[in-house]
């Protein structure tokens, strides 16, 4: 038998078809995109390659630095928001889920069973000027009639937050579930009590900042909101943040938090659907620029340069991350 004598061939034979596909349709296109960024010309007259066109890069960076910054800002804000929403949820499912654990996990991923575009358009209906949320609030006089969320950065950030939330919940859940729950209990048995005064201070600062941001967003008085938030946060922090959680459970779940942050931040950085459907031209992200340069303006050189910059920036970030924490924890959250 040929195979029996040449056993070393078997793994390569199994790998070849799939890896060839990835080489042909992932690696080669990436190289081609880099080449295209040195093109000049147009679709009608054809493109010519010249190394002299390296100036496309500084030009593109210069022209679209606002959109780059905006993407980082929105993606960063959405990542922080998904963390704040996801952590208590993942914690509750992992430690208090009981028999409902699987059902709750299913409900977390259920949004993925509907269309991404339809979900985003739903938020347009929900956040609309006289929609589900603000219609009643305006009738009751809680917010001003001229107030709007749709077509503002808040709408874009909340769209991104909603769409990528499951990517944050799952890895945090996995890391909490995998960690030994008894460690937290052991800490309590060893007299790890409420975290004071740390919990009070941390709660006051975090919730004060959050309420201040809400004040900015909704046009309420910022100092009053911040003060109210600080009081609520101080009480909550004093009551709920235990030393066992801060010193044992939270550090054990950090790999999940890091994995979740990347799984949210990467797609959020390149996203253009939320900005296109929920924002206005003033909220355009770098994805919107790439999309319109490619598909509307046929400006292949600039668009290629922009996507190449985006790809390199993300791969560098991922490489640093993988060096620090390993790639296994990255793929964990997407394994469903």
């Amino acid at each position: 038998m040929f195979l029996r004598r040449h056993r070393w061939i078997v793994p390569y034979a199994l790998l070849t078809p799939g890896l060839l596909w990835l080489a042909a349709f992932y690696v080669w296109p990436a190289v081609q995109m880099f080449v295209s960024s040195f093109w000049s010309g147009s679709v009608e007259r054809g493109f010519t390659f010249s190394l002299e066109n390296w100036t496309t890069y500084p030009d593109a960076l210069d022209r679209y630095s606002t959109q780059f910054q905006r993407s980082v800002l929105y993606a960063g804000a959405a990542t922080i928001l998904t963390f704040m929403i996801a952590y208590p949820l993942a914690y509750a499912i992992a430690f208090r889920g009981g028999r409902l654990k699987n059902l709750l996990l299913f409900l977390v991923v259920a949004p993925f069973f509907t269309s991404f575009l339809l979900r985003t358009i739903s938020w347009k209906i929900i956040l609309g000027d006289d929609g589900l949320v603000f219609g009643p609030l305006k009738t009751l006089g809680f917010v001003d009639d001229s107030f709007r969320v749709l077509a503002t950065p808040i709408a874009v950030i909340s769209g991104i937050t909603y769409n990528f939330l499951p990517f944050m919940v799952l890895p945090i859940y996995v890391s909490l579930e995998k960690g030994d729950q008894r460690l937290g209990e052991a800490a309590e048995d060893l007299y790890a009590g409420p975290w004071r005064p740390g919990g009070t201070i941390a709660g006051a600062i975090a919730s004060g900042l959050l309420f201040a941001l809400l004040g900015v967003a909704f046009g309420y008085s910022v100092p009053i909101m911040a003060a109210a938030g600080a009081v609520i946060g101080a009480v909550a922090g004093t009551l709920f943040l235990s030393e066992g959680f801060i010193r044992v459970t939270l550090p054990l779940s950090l790999p999940g938090v890091f994995a979740g942050s990347l799984l949210v931040f990467i797609p959020a950085l390149g996203d253009y659907v939320n900005a296109a459907l929920l924002g206005n031209p003033g909220t355009n992200m770098i994805g919107n620029v790439i999309q319109s340069r490619f598909l509307v303006n046929n400006d292949y050189p600039t668009a290629s340069a922009l996507s190449f910059i985006l790809m390199v920036a993300i791969l560098v970030a991922v490489a640093i991350y993988a060096r620090l924490l390993g790639t296994e924890s990255l793929t964990e959250g997407r394994r469903l």
């Binding site: 890896l19 690696v27 081609q32 996507s307």
Partner: peptide, 22 residues
Amino acid sequence: LIFLPMATPEIVLGASLLTMFV
């Protein structure tokens, strides 16, 4: 090689395929 496509934003995957096809 298997990990990279998952770490690349979708827009880059789509855009690079487009430039290759063109």
